[in-house]
Design a protein around this nucleic acid. Structure first.
Length: 469
RNA sequence: GCCCCGAUGGUGUAGUGGCCUAUCAUGCAGCCCUGUCGAGGCUGCGACCCGGGUUCAAAUCCCGGUCGGGGCGCCA
C-alpha cells in the first residue's frame, strides 16, 4: 500500500484510508469522509461491516441501521464486492477480535462509525477474476481483466516497485550527470539491421516504429549532450513467444561521451546497486506483500540481496570455455544460448557481465580494436551483455566513432551506408568516443519481484497474439 | 518459424469409453445469526472450446479448426 501521509484531501474524501488506519489513535473521535472499493460486505440485519480499500490501505466501516438513513444503509449492505463506496463517519477503536486462549491480543485497530454513505459505482457480479479469492487465475484471464487484476495486492505491489525502480535508476543517473531525453519512435529506416520493424503509413510515405533509440541517443551525444538517458518504448516485429519477450517493451538506455565499454559497465553496476540498495532500505513492505502471495502459492520468498561491486566480468572467450567445461556443445563464434547461460549462471549466480563478443555477432555501430583477437584468431568487439541467471538484461558496448570504419562495418553487414547518412553524417565533424547500453526494464523487474513471466510486470503487455486491452 | 502439451460452471479444478442427471473449492442468489474480521451454518444457481468422425454408448478415442500453456530460435 502506498504511503499517503502527504496526500491532500480531494473532492471525494477528507482522508485516505491509509491516513486513517495509520493514525487511528490520534484521530479517534474526529469525522472523516473516505472512499474505496468494497472488499467485503457482511450484513447482519441491523448492523453491517464494510471493508473498504483504496490505494493506500484498508479499513472497516461500521454501519448501524439506527445511526443513518435507512435507504443508504440498505443499499450499502447489499452492495456487490468491488463497488466503490464513499462513507462519512467518526473514527473509533474497533472492538477487539476474539482470540483463542493463550493467543496474544493484537494491537488496537480503528474503524469508521458511519453516519452517511453513498455507492459511487456498483460493481457487476460475478467478477471475472476475484480480487481477494483464493483461486489461482490463469495469466491470460488476468490480462484480459487487468483492471481487476491490478486491484490484487501483490500485483499492485509489483507495479509500485516498478515505479520505484525507475525512480531510483533516474536518481542515480542524474547524480552521475546524465540528462533525460526522448528520441523519435516514428522512423524512416532500421536502426540496426536484423530485427523486424513494424511498418506504418506516415501520410504519403512509409515509416516504421522504432525498435531502439540507439542511433538517436548516439547523435545526441555527438551533438554535445555528453551524457544522456532515455526510458521509452521499443517495438520489435518478431514472432517470439516466450516468458521474456514482448513486441512492445520499455527500454532503459544510456549513452555517454568519452567513455568505453568498461566505463558504462561501471555506470550500470552502480545504478543497479543503487536501485537494489534503495529498494532494500525503503520498500521492504512491497516485497512483503509479494511474498505473502508467493507463500499462498507454495513459492519461496524473494529477497532483495544487494549485489556486491564490481559485478563479475566473464569475457566471451572465457564464457565459451565455461560452457565447454560444463558439457555444453559450443564453438568460438557461436551465440551463447539459454541452456549455455544456465551453465555460466551455475558458476556466477546473480548479475554478471559478458564483455568482448566476436565482432561478427555485434551490430555495425559497435567499436572494435584491430589488435584484440579471440582464442581462434577472430576479431573481438567492445560489445557486452549483462545477464542474470539465464536471462539477458542488457546489451551494450563502446561505439564506433571512426566514420570510415563505421561505413565499412555497414558494408560488411550488407547494408548501404547511404541509407544511414542521417546517422553517419553525425560522425563527420569530430566525434567523441562514446559508449552506452540498453536495459530491459521488465526483465530487471522479473529479477527483483521473482515474476516468472515478463507479462506480470508490464501493465498491458503486447505480444504476438495480444493487442487488447 | 520449429517441437511438445492442454481446453470442464464467472474463476480454479476432479474426471483415463457405460458408475456423469459431471467432483470439489471459490463465486453468485436466498435464508439463519445484533460486533463480524480468512466469519460461520443451511438451501439453491451455474460448465464438458468449435466442426466432423469412430462406437450400441464419447467430457473421455480419431481428424481439422480456434484459443491457450511449456520449450527452442531471436533478442532487451
Amino acid at each position: 500500500m502506498r504511503d499517503s501521509a502527504s496526500w491532500e484531501p480531494t473532492s471525494y474524501r477528507t482522508h485516505t484510508i491509509g491516513q486513517v488506519s495509520e493514525n487511528g489513535a490520534s484521530m479517534a473521535g474526529s469525522e472523516v469522509t473516505i472512499a474505496g472499493y468494497a472488499e467485503t460486505v457482511r450484513g447482519r440485519g441491523a448492523i453491517c461491516f464494510l471493508m473498504l480499500r483504496d490505494g493506500t490501505g484498508h479499513i472497516q466501516a461500521f454501519l448501524k441501521r439506527d445511526n443513518m438513513d435507512e435507504g443508504s444503509f440498505e443499499s450499502i449492505q447489499s452492495a456487490s464486492r468491488e463497488s466503490t463506496i464513499q462513507v462519512t463517519g467518526t473514527v473509533a477503536q474497533k472492538r477487539p477480535p476474539k482470540v483463542a486462549e493463550g493467543e496474544p491480543v493484537p494491537p488496537p485497530e480503528y474503524e469508521v462509525n458511519v453516519s452517511s454513505g453513498t455507492i459511487l459505482a456498483e460493481a457487476a457480479a460475478p467478477l471475472p477474476v476475484g480480487v481477494t479469492d483464493d483461486v489461482q487465475v490463469g495469466l491470460d484471464v488476468r490480462l484480459d481483466n487487468r483492471h481487476l487484476d491490478l486491484r490484487r495486492a501483490h500485483v499492485n505491489a509489483m507495479f509500485q516497485l516498478r515505479s520505484k525502480v525507475l525512480q531510483y535508476g533516474r536518481d542515480h543517473l542524474i547524480k552521475e550527470g546524465f540528462q533525460e531525453i526522448n528520441s523519435p519512435k516514428i522512423i524512416a529506416a532500421a536502426a540496426e539491421g536484423g530485427t523486424n520493424l513494424f511498418p506504418m503509413k506516415y501520410f504519403e510515405t512509409e515509416a516504421y516504429l522504432s525498435q531502439s533509440p540507439q542511433l538517436y541517443k548516439q547523435l545526441a551525444v555527438l551533438g554535445g549532450l555528453e551524457r544522456v538517458f532515455e526510458i521509452g518504448p521499443a517495438f520489435r516485429a518478431e514472432k517470439h513467444d516466450t516468458y521474456r519477450h514482448l513486441n512492445e517493451f520499455i527500454s532503459f538506455d544510456i549513452e555517454g561521451a568519452w567513455m568505453d565499454d568498461e566505463d558504462v559497465m561501471g555506470v550500470q553496476e552502480r545504478m543497479i546497486h543503487h536501485i537494489w540498495t534503495e529498494v532494500s532500505n525503503n520498500d521492504q513492505d512491497l516485497m512483503d506483500v509479494i511474498n505473502e502471495y508467493r507463500a499462498t502459492q507454495g513459492q519461496d520468498a524473494v529477497t532483495v540481496d544487494v549485489p556486491s561491486l564490481p559485478f563479475p566480468r566473464i569475457p566471451y572467450c572465457d564464457a565459451i570455455e565455461i560452457v565447454k567445461d560444463g558439457g555444453g556443445e559450443i564453438e568460438w563464434g557461436d551465440d551463447i544460448e539459454s541452456h549455455h547461460c544456465d551453465l555460466i549462471a551455475a558458476k556466477y549466480p546473480g548479475f554478471h557481465f559478458l564483455p568482448r563478443w566476436p565482432m561478427a555477432m555485434k551490430p555495425f555501430y559497435i567499436h572494435h580494436k584491430e589488435e584484440e583477437k579471440g582464442t581462434t584468431g577472430g576479431q573481438l568487439s567492445r560489445g557486452f551483455d549483462l545477464n542474470y541467471g539465464r536471462d539477458e538484461m542488457t546489451s551494450g558496448g563502446a561505439r564506433e566513432h571512426r566514420v570510415d570504419v563505421l561505413e565499412q562495418n555497414l558494408r560488411n553487414m550488407g547494408l548501404e551506408p547511404e541509407d544511414f547518412a542521417f546517422y553517419t553524417d553525425g560522425f563527420r565533424y569530430g566525434a567523441p568516443p562514446h559508449a552506452g547500453w540498453g536495459l530491459g526494464v521488465a526483465r530487471l523487474l522479473m529479477v527483483l519481484t521473482g515474476a516468472g513471466n515478463v507479462r506480470e510486470v508490464v501493465l498491458f503487455p503486447r505480444d504476438r497474439s495480444r493487442v487488447t486491452p
